[in-house]
Simulated scan of single mutants.
Amino acid sequence: MALIGASPVTTLTVDLDALRNARGMVRLCLTAAADNFPTCVDDDRAVARSVPATQSSLSYDGLPPGGYALAVIHDENGNGKLDTFMGIPREGFGFSRNPRIAFGPPSFKSARFTLSDLGDEQRIRMRYMF
């Protein structure tokens, strides 16, 4: 039985494809704020998660429906950040909707997806430059 006046919540399932190895951690940042994508800095409503790189699937439960974008890094050495060399990522990365990558991260708009009352699944292809 639904409660009158209760806000609807839903589930997002995330599947990661093409992780290079099972070392380190996978760090995910889910946000609805365009100005805080992809880092989720200063975003109190962002949902950041870290899971072992052996885990290639996870769920976010209890999310309100709406527009979101997801950024993922494969932190192979476990230092808590995306390592770069001359601005080029040395570790894996991926984004919701798998947008085309040119120079720098994609825009929020290109990674944005709509989470409906029925939930959603995002299959993210990890990319490695080195």
Results as ranks from 00 to 15, higher is better:
F95A: 10
R23Y: 07
R97E: 14
D44W: 00
A18E: 15
N21V: 05
V26G: 14
A69L: 12
G24H: 09
D83H: 06
N98M: 13
L58A: 03
G24Q: 13
A111C: 05
N21A: 09
P8I: 03
L19Q: 06
G80W: 12
E76F: 05
L70E: 09
D61K: 11
N79V: 10
E76V: 11
R100M: 07
A32H: 12
L63P: 07
S107I: 07
N98P: 09
R23N: 15
T84G: 04
I101C: 08
C40Q: 03
D35M: 05
V41P: 01
T39K: 01
G78I: 07
P64R: 12
S7P: 00
F95N: 09
G92P: 00
P105I: 00
F113G: 01
K81R: 13
A69F: 11
S110M: 07
G67F: 08
R90F: 06
V41N: 04
L16Q: 05
R27V: 09
V14P: 08
A48W: 00
V41M: 01
V51C: 02
I73W: 00
A18M: 03
Y60K: 08
R23K: 15
D35S: 14
R100D: 15
S96K: 11
D75R: 01
F37E: 05
N36Y: 00
S7V: 14
D15V: 15
T54M: 02
T31E: 08
A102M: 14
N79A: 12
T54F: 05
Y68I: 09
M86T: 06
A53G: 13
F113D: 14
L82S: 03
Q55F: 04
E76D: 13
G94N: 11
R45P: 00
V14W: 07
P38T: 07
L30D: 13
G94K: 02
V9W: 03
T84A: 12
L82Q: 10
F113W: 09
V14N: 05
G62R: 08
L30R: 13
R112A: 15
A111P: 07
R97P: 02
V26P: 12
G67W: 00
L82T: 03
S59T: 15
D75Y: 07
F103V: 13
F103R: 10
A22I: 12
G66L: 02
G87Y: 10
I88A: 06
G67T: 15
G80N: 10
N21Y: 02
F37N: 00
G104W: 08
V14Q: 08
I101K: 04
L16K: 03
A69K: 04
M25A: 14
F95K: 01
V72R: 00
Q55S: 08
R97K: 15
K109F: 02
L70V: 13
Q55G: 00
N98V: 10
D17L: 12
C29E: 01
P106A: 02
N77G: 05
P99T: 06
F113I: 11
S50W: 04
L58D: 02
E91A: 12
G80T: 11
F108D: 04
A32F: 01
G92W: 03
R97G: 05
A111V: 06
G104R: 06
E91N: 04
H74R: 09
F108C: 08
Y60I: 09
P38M: 02
K81T: 11
A71E: 00
T10E: 07
P52T: 04
F93D: 05
Y60E: 02
G94Y: 01
N77H: 01
I101D: 02
Y60A: 01
S50P: 02
